[in-house]
Computed example of a mutant assay.
Amino acid sequence: MNGLQRAGIALLVCGALVFLAPSGAFSSTVAERGTTVQTASDANALVGIEYPAAEDGTRTVQLESGQADEGGGCFFVCSDYEYNNIGITLFTDQTGASNLAVDQIEVSNTNGDMIGGEGLREEQPENGMQAIRGDFRCSSSGIFGSGDQQHDSTNITVSLEASNQNLTVSLDREITVECVQD
């Protein structure tokens, strides 16, 4: 065998090895990926919810006697402090298409003794889809003059279903209304 034949056989063997050897590319890989899923806050959801009379960042409405619309006077017997037209919730359509319609809304409370005047009611506001407002009363005690408001509370549950041709949103929210004791 001469040198040229040996070189040809060597190149042939090298070519076969290169052909059979892995190419350096990968056929699979493993990678860890993190995913975080969060729901939007009530104010930023598809059906936005505001709590107009609630303390900032809570769903609690505090009724203080100094803010009452009337009542609280005592002459041996005290009249209740009365709070009229208190905003409980305001629902807004934030879908972008602004075509959600309220299909169903239910409002309930745990303490009917605190509900006064026109009670809990639904309204169609200019700046939203639906609003819940209420009139409340808080008992007072004393003998003469201005009575001391007594502590009491009620939980109001609002259930809403709204939809358009592509989307249905259902939600339940509980709001606490409390009489702040003097």
Rank of each mutant, 00 (worst) to 15 (best):
M1K: 08
M1G: 09
G8W: 05
L11Q: 08
L12G: 13
C14Q: 09
G15E: 03
S28T: 15
V37L: 14
D42K: 00
A43P: 03
A43Y: 08
L46I: 08
L46T: 12
L46W: 09
I49A: 11
E50K: 06
Y51V: 03
A54D: 02
G57N: 02
G57L: 04
T58F: 10
R59M: 06
V61H: 06
G66K: 14
A68N: 05
A68K: 05
D69W: 07
F76H: 07
F76N: 12
F76D: 12
V77F: 11
S79N: 12
S79K: 10
D80E: 06
D80P: 08
E82S: 03
Y83A: 01
Y83N: 01
N84H: 06
I86R: 06
G87W: 11
F91H: 12
D93A: 13
N99S: 14
N99T: 14
A101N: 13
Q104E: 15
I105K: 00
E106G: 09
V107W: 04
S108G: 13
N109C: 04
G112V: 09
M114V: 01
I115F: 01
G116R: 04
G117R: 00
G117P: 01
E118C: 00
L120G: 07
L120C: 09
E122F: 09
Q124E: 13
G128V: 10
Q130M: 14
I132E: 03
R137M: 09
R137L: 08
C138A: 09
S140G: 13
S141I: 06
S141P: 01
G142A: 12
F144D: 13
G145E: 12
G145N: 12
D148P: 04
Q150Y: 00
D152W: 00
T157K: 10
E161D: 05
S163H: 13
N164R: 06
N166L: 07
N166D: 14
T168Q: 08
S170F: 04
S170R: 12
S170G: 10
L171Q: 11
L171A: 07
R173I: 13
E174Y: 00
E174I: 05
T176F: 00
Q181P: 05
